[in-house]
Design a protein around this nucleic acid. Structure first.
Lengths: 220, 220
DNA sequence: ATTTTCAATATTGGATCCAAAATATGGAGA
DNA sequence: TCTCCATATTTTGGATCCAATATTGAAAAT
């Protein structure tokens, strides 16, 4: 392992494993529905089963894996209904977050959101799908964090985590990337005008587009 | 351990510990803010630290304890803001659940909710606070489960878990117990009429009463 | 007296080993 | 051939041990 990797590597094995598992699920290396063989996975990640199991417990709490006593963990298979349910819950919670955020949005906050958007556009221009997914998330979460409601923001984060595995596919399409940028700009415009209604509407459209694109992917 | 206890005891140590920890936090035996000494707790519960740590990971996911690498776990101290935030989120999600539930409520469903209510009243009459808390929870969750939205119901459950520690205090007061029963009856009436609006309104009032009673308790 | 450093101690993180449960295998009986 | 049951193997659950990190306390220097 290079010094650079060592610096990046989290301070505990369970956090390292957690990140690796997220990535594996996100990128589809661990496909939905597959049972998780702890022994094999632990060996592959060069850790013992203890930190692996703690990471799995965390993922269970986030709804990314299921667990049955004495049967083990299993990557969650998101059904179409699940997807719609998650997005509907997101709609409810994110509207709440956006309204609270707009009510107390400072110019400084706005600047950070704009910076995130610049990063999104830079990644899109470079065609870097992974970077774009990260930047997109930062864009939204920065806004949600402005609501000053840590528990609400935490909930929304876990909901995003749940569908991360599928969202990355969304950015594979150039048309989607272009549309995301346009919709973000519209949202930013609403935020600058401190119009909560417009921001909510814009972001709802944004979200609906995403779920509409994702739905076909789940049939396969 | 008696045979009866043995039958009740969960199939894995981590589930047993999970239940014990919840109770300990709920009853205030583990007070908010106290760091959790794994060694001592494990010994007290007669298990090793491994299942204890996995249970703690679950509780962390539910927001009942916090975790810092190399520092350990800590029972969360719910601030007044936290309480309000949790109840506001519950309001949003439970309205959604109730509307979905009413839309598909069968007579059979209604019967189960009524049965839960009978149990609530029975426990209240007996002055059994713990049983009343359990029955009350069953009353609401039975309704939420009727929504046919498993993820939504799961989320609501974890939100309830978060404030369980404080809710039990609520039932210590006889006036509160009486009011809960009245409000449940009003909600049942709305459900029988299949009036989603009335059910939502009634339950919002119900919830607001609870939070109003709980708020003073959090100053101390 | 205050601050800093360093060692001693306590506590968490992780690896290995063993036990318990579930699953797979294979043979006996109908 | 099919079913059922006993056994072997795999896999998960948990206990113990060791390592790494954090905390505490005391001594030394300013």
């Amino acid at each position: 392992m290079s010094p650079d990797e060592a610096r990046r590597r989290p301070p505990t094995a369970q956090q390292f494993v957690l990140g690796e598992l997220r990535r594996a699920i996100t990128t589809g290396r661990l496909r939905p529905g597959t049972p998780i063989r702890q022994d094999a996975l632990a060996e592959e990640l060069q850790v013992s089963r203890v930190p692996l199991r703690e990471a799995l417990k965390t993922l269970e709490g986030e709804g990314l894996v299921t667990y049955k006593p004495h049967k083990g963990y299993c990557v969650v298979m998101l059904s179409l209904d699940d997807l719609r349910e998650v997005y509907r819950i997101r709609e409810l919670l994110e509207e709440e977050a956006v309204r609270a955020a707009v009510a107390r949005l400072t110019d400084d906050d706005l600047g950070r959101i704009e910076a995130a958007q610049e990063e999104v556009e830079r990644a899109a221009a470079a065609g870097d799908v992974a970077a774009m997914a990260t930047a997109n998330r930062a864009f939204h979460m920065t806004l949600f964090d402005c609501a000053g409601r840590p528990r609400l923001a935490r909930l929304i984060r876990t909901l995003w985590d749940t569908t991360d595995a599928y969202r990355s596919m969304y950015y594979g399409d150039a048309g989607n990337r272009e549309r995301v940028i346009e919709e973000h700009r519209a949202a930013l415009d609403a935020l600058r005008r401190r119009s909560a209604d417009d921001a909510v509407t814009t972001l709802n459209v944004h979200r609906d587009h995403a779920v509409a694109e994702l739905e076909p992917l789940l049939d396969a």
